[in-house]
Design a binder for these strands. Structure first.
Lengths: 211, 211
DNA sequence: TCCGCTCTTGACCAATTGATCAAGAATTAA
DNA sequence: TTAATTCTTGATCAATTGGTCAAGAGCGGA
């Protein structure tokens, strides 16, 4: 029983290695087919292990799923964490947009995994959303509100601004197929996307004197 | 065989009625669980028909799925269709945002159905995306480009502007659970959302003299 | 009323799939 | 080397589920 060791959870070389193999494969499969649509066999095949062997490391399909989610959560939130109250507002938000956009390009499977999970009611990470995520967002919303109060940013509901940034940036990972279909499958639409989003943001958020 | 009639596809009263029942139920179930996650039994139960009876009207599970998609597509695109080249640019785009936002509030299942379909590679509507959808978007992008050329709108890539509007508005349907979790489940966040998006758009798109 | 067509369903089938288990192979610590 | 532990897998099970079928119930036109 590798998951419930006698005392400390000391892991074998083989154990660490195989768990990593499994989670990598699981991310691909779950993000492509969803929880129910993915099969243990697919994951096993993708990482070159037998199905029983895979279930030796993770006793239930669901355990693999939650493990992949947990493993990816932190890196997904990092950019928001980095939003600095002491920085220049528009610069900070621009950096945030760029960072999220880069994640969408470099790790689209992670984005799709979350999108699928939330789309279906977030059965596995509901508590995370209401707890740690809410706290982080509330915190950064307060930062943004501070900037607005200081007249350094146009007035806008900070929470919805954050939602708008999430939506527009993750769109390029989650709806990639649609974007490619509409644009005609040019490989490198990301530069244009970044320019468009940043200009919208910069113009949209520049503080404006009341008229 | 109700689907392949001898000559004209004349439908019985019972037929029309039951097909409607089925498609209504199917929309709910497919949008909640995805194609693979949904079962024919669930749909049957939801509309009070037996499973074999349901398969009498739609021979395959997949047939129900595509029927629901088709049935919903038109109404989903209608607002973009309505974008009027002769209108006032910002006013037109604002109306578009409001219309899409209203759809997200009033028919979130439809949004989630499409989101799920596209997220998983659009196996059923891929051709629609590359055909009719692309044509419509290209058409409206040209309209927007025209406005920009006439100096009535800030310069921005029109395609990506449309993507941004899709993303931000549909976000409130597709990621509803997350939005509620972060906001603390206030029932009526939609008014604030609309205000935030419109102000971002209006400020972001107002033509600005070069500095 | 009567007849043909439409509609409905209980029983059933085959394929898929998550999970188990026992037995053997590989690894590791002594 | 050896013995204990960890790792691996073929065979197998039970549950789920998409889909079939035949037989009967219901409906509508003549």
């Amino acid at each position: 029983m590798p998951e419930v060791k006698t005392s400390a959870a000391r892991k074998t070389r083989i154990q660490t290695q195989n768990e990593e193999l499994i989670l990598d494969a699981a991310l691909e499969v779950f993000s492509a087919y969803g929880f129910r649509g993915a099969t243990v066999d697919q994951i096993a095949a993708k990482c070159g292990l037998s199905k029983p062997n895979l279930l030796y490391y993770f006793r239930r399909k669901h355990d693999i799923y939650t493990a992949v989610l947990k493993r990816t959560l932190a890196s997904w939130l990092e950019p928001l964490w980095a939003l600095d109250a002491n920085g220049e507002p528009i610069e900070e938000l621009s950096r945030y947009v760029s960072a999220k956009l880069r994640l969408s390009r470099e790790r689209p499977e992670a984005s799709r995994l979350f999108a699928n999970e939330i789309l279906h009611g977030a059965p596995a990470i509901g508590k995370f959303l209401k707890g740690p995520l809410k706290r982080l967002v509330d915190d950064k919303a307060a930062v943004i509100q501070g900037w607005i109060g200081a007249g350094r940013l146009a007035a806008i509901d900070p929470h919805h601004l954050i939602f708008a940034i999430w939506a527009t940036t993750q769109h390029y990972a989650d709806f990639d197929v649609q974007v490619r279909a509409v644009l005609g499958n040019h490989d490198d639409y990301m530069a244009a996307a970044e320019q468009a989003l940043l200009s919208l943001l910069v113009n949209g958020l520049k503080p404006r004197p009341k008229e």
